[in-house]
């Protein structure tokens, strides 16, 4: 319930009205949206029970390692209602050909694969929020100084998921395990997303915001 009340309202894309529509404009709008979402996500992390009990160094380590997984889960969650689009925001949806035109085809394929998986499972909001918090807690950051504290943080989230599933879906005894088994695909998807945005940055056509670049650099 703490995660439910802490979930931030979805952001809207803010395309520059003075720029004519183009694939580059799509990329600029997307990068701006993701940078704002990252900012909101860092604020959100502080509301995950147990997060601010970790040392500042470990909070940074978990965020630097797991931030893209949480952004990916947000997009995948918003895309649950669609059969072939990625819904980055209510007013920023990309289908396959739009993604390809913008140079995001690999990102599209990866995110749609994970989206379909969760669609088949009928992921609900409580599960998504718990997985999102887990993706930070379980981000396998290097140089964690308080390994025991991080472990407790993970255990509490795992316990919440198990308690939720045994209360809400007592007949599906494998539900929690099945959800945890999606985490490797989430990591793989986030890795592909990081590669995609690193490539965009290196190509130099899309200026990226400082925070987004700082976090991207921590992943490379």
């Amino acid at each position: 319930s703490q995660l439910l009340v802490s979930e931030p309202a979805p952001l809207r894309a803010a395309p520059d009205p003075s720029t004519p529509d183009s694939d580059l404009k799509t990329l600029l709008t997307l990068c701006d949206l993701l940078n704002r979402e990252l900012l909101v996500m860092i604020g959100w992390a502080k509301h995950i029970p147990g997060f601010t009990g970790l040392s500042l160094v470990d909070q940074m380590a978990l965020l630097q390692s797991g931030w893209m997984e949480t952004l990916v889960l947000n997009v995948v969650w918003r895309s649950q209602g669609s059969a072939d689009e990625l819904q980055f925001a209510e007013n920023l949806r990309l289908n396959e050909s739009q993604s390809r035109a913008a140079g995001l085809h690999d990102l599209y394929t990866a995110l749609r694969h994970l989206t379909s998986k969760y669609q088949q499972m009928g992921l609900n909001q409580e599960e998504m929020l718990t997985l999102k918090a887990m993706s930070l807690a379980n981000s396998d950051a290097e140089n964690v100084e308080g390994a025991d504290a991080v472990q407790c943080f993970q255990d509490a989230l795992h316990e919440a998921l198990q308690e939720y599933e045994s209360g809400q879906r007592p007949s599906e005894s494998h539900r929690a395990g099945r959800l945890l088994m999606t985490l490797p695909l989430l990591r793989q998807t986030a890795h592909r997303a990081v590669r995609c945005f690193s490539r965009l940055h290196m190509e130099g056509h899309v200026p990226m915001h400082k925070l987004f670049l700082e976090m991207l650099e921590a992943k490379i």
Partner: peptide, 15 residues
């Protein structure tokens, strides 16, 4: 932490 100034500030200073 030098390299990750913005994140460090955001975590230290609240929202």
């Amino acid at each position: 932490q030098e390299k990750h100034k913005i994140l460090h500030k955001l975590l230290q200073n609240g929202n």
